[in-house]
Amino acid sequence: MRGRLRQAAWAVLAILVAVILTQSTWWDTNQTVFAQALVSGLLIGGVYALVAMGLSLVFGVLDIINFAHGALMTIAIYASYLLFDNYGIDPYVSLLITIPLLFVIGVGIQRFAINPVMDAPIHNQLLLTLGIAIVIENLALVLFTGTPRSIELAYARNEFDLGLFTLDFPIKVFGAVVSLPKLIAFMVALLLGGAIYVLIHRTQLGAAIRAAAQEPEGAEMVGIDVRRIYTITFGIGAACVGAAGALVMPFLFVSPTAGATFNIIAFIVVVLGGMGSIPGAVVGGLVIGLTQEMTQIFVPGSSKLLGVFVIFLAVLLFRPQGLFGKVQR
């Protein structure tokens, strides 16, 4: 009964806040800005979710923090860019190449670099993945120079006639603009997230992954090759940023540190959402995306990431297992 009362109180409070907000003069003049922050936050949040998903999976199954996650995304960004620049391949078509490419790279890294140190102390593994990140970043620097490149999709500002309605990009949603590349990135990211969820929860491979994550010896005993599962899982994690890299390339820029921003955000999302939880990565990604933009408009003059760090600390203090995580021993 008390629980219901509290829920009711929260609901009343939320409604009050909404009413005050919408009736205030602030709202009148800043509706558009608020809508834009909401929209921008959600759109980028979808990409954060996809990136975090890969990290969370690797974390949940192999128990290692992959500091090279962002660097792998940089590889995907470059791959997509080079395919576009040299062969005119549309970035969304390049997904068909970057996803398997990064899967293979991930498998390679896991088998030849990480597997040998799986039983080493955790800080060895952290340093190893950090080292891999530095190598990748500097390799990109040497091969491509640090000059950032960018592309503009020829059809990004076109009109699309879909029969029932036409979409003239960038489209307006409550006064906020949604650009085509960001919308596609958002939708594809969530789609892939759903696909991964189905993989983990409805397939033979997914059952093996979850089993290997929770109880490797028990998994061996029912015929699961746990080492192979580790390798495949790391590959899937890399494939996630293989997709994310191609998706962000059209609206970001191509440079050796392009994936680095997503690295830190991905960690925070994983902590917020709960390590090893796919729904957690999605919810966490959207929340962090929104927080970023909301901080910008409600706490002006501060870093966008301030709100994000505050959330991170709050989670560590009050609910270290994250929103969807289970309490660890």
Binding site: A211, M221, V222, G223
Partner: peptide
């Protein structure tokens, strides 16, 4: 390795049981 033997039909249980606790 154990997983190959298990796949061939020879399976064991453990003294201290090892369930998948999250499932």
């Amino acid at each position: 390795p154990p997983h190959r033997i298990a796949a061939r039909g020879l399976v064991r249980t453990f003294q201290v049981v090892k369930p998948f606790s999250g499932l």
